[in-house]
């Protein structure tokens, strides 16, 4: 099973700072990590490789500092890594990012593409499904387990919080994974010294079949108007009620606001 994994380098902080003027994330000076869901994706790929054989190729779009992340993935055991980096890519939103990633993936034949559910900085959870659409392959998001792979069919469990679905997916396909899907292993000392300096592939805009109109800021339909932190303010005085009264009060409140019970 040949697998592509999409990995994103993200700022190592839960308290993201936003540039007030542009509304974009401030990334300068913040240490970076591999997006946690993507480490899950890499681990799942390693486990699938152990069972079904094949080859694992990681792709990231980002600045050249993302090389460090790819070296780490080599030390975790992937076979090949590609960095997509170009000034023309800067400012890409999820649509443009997906476009770029899909163009790079098209140059190879994969049975499975694994993306994280969502990135901890952008948080949209859009890139995986959009890449699948650009590649015209089926996808399942929110996968928390891969059950098996037989005759080109991948059987997965999708976690929709209130229900679980078991789905069969014809490959080539794309899945996005939740952190339950696999627990990332530790890097092994042997692999750190033997593999972390394996050569990385680097592709720029010229290497891809993309038009400048589809990528970067110009190719990004998302226009950020405003970003802000949600804040909760207490409008009603605090009441102490038993569970029954509490349920009644909440229901009345919802109904008064035009909700339906």
């Amino acid at each position: 099973m040949n697998i592509a994994v999409l990995v994103k380098q993200v700022p190592d902080t839960t308290e993201i700072k936003i540039d007030k003027e542009t509304g974009a994330l401030i990334r300068k000076g913040i240490p970076t990590i591999t997006n946690p869901d993507d480490l899950t994706g890499v681990e799942l790929a390693l486990q699938l490789k152990e069972t079904y054989g094949g080859n694992i190729h990681a792709f990231t779009m980002g600045p050249s500092s993302a090389k460090n992340m790819l070296r780490e993935l080599y030390a975790r055991g992937i076979d090949e890594a590609t960095l997509l980096s170009d000034k023309a890519f800067a400012g890409s939103d999820t649509w443009a990012t997906s476009h770029i990633l899909a163009s790079a993936l098209k140059k190879h034949a994969f049975d499975l593409v694994i993306a994280g559910r969502q990135a901890i900085d952008g948080d949209t959870a859009q890139v995986g499904p959009q890449v699948a659409e650009f590649l015209k392959i089926p996808h399942v998001s929110y996968v928390d387990r891969v059950i098996d792979y037989n005759d080109g069919m991948l059987k997965v469990k999708k976690n929709e919080e209130h229900r679980m679905l078991t789905l069969n997916l014809p490959t080539p396909a794309l899945i996005t994974v939740l952190d339950e899907a696999a627990k990332p292993r530790y890097m092994n000392m042997f692999d750190i010294f033997r593999r972390s300096h394996l050569p990385l592939n680097q592709l720029t805009c010229d290497d891809l079949d993309v038009s400048l109109a589809d990528i970067g800021i110009k190719g990004s339909p998302t226009k950020v108007k405003k970003t802000f932190n949600k804040s909760a303010t207490q409008k009603q005085p605090k009441q102490t009620l038993n569970p029954e009264q509490a349920a009644r009060t909440i229901l009345d409140f919802i109904e008064a606001k035009g909700g339906q019970s």
């Binding site: 530790y186 890097m187 092994n188 000392m189 042997f190 692999d191 750190i192 010294f193 033997r194």
Partner: peptide
């Protein structure tokens, strides 16, 4: 046992003798 799996016991030894290829500093 976990340290063994991580290859820590092999850290500062050469690959030809079964080591991980690390150095004293690592």
């Amino acid at each position: 046992e976990s340290m063994r799996e991580m290859g820590l016991f092999a850290l500062p030894f050469e690959e030809i003798e079964g080591g991980a290829g690390g150095d004293t500093l690592s």
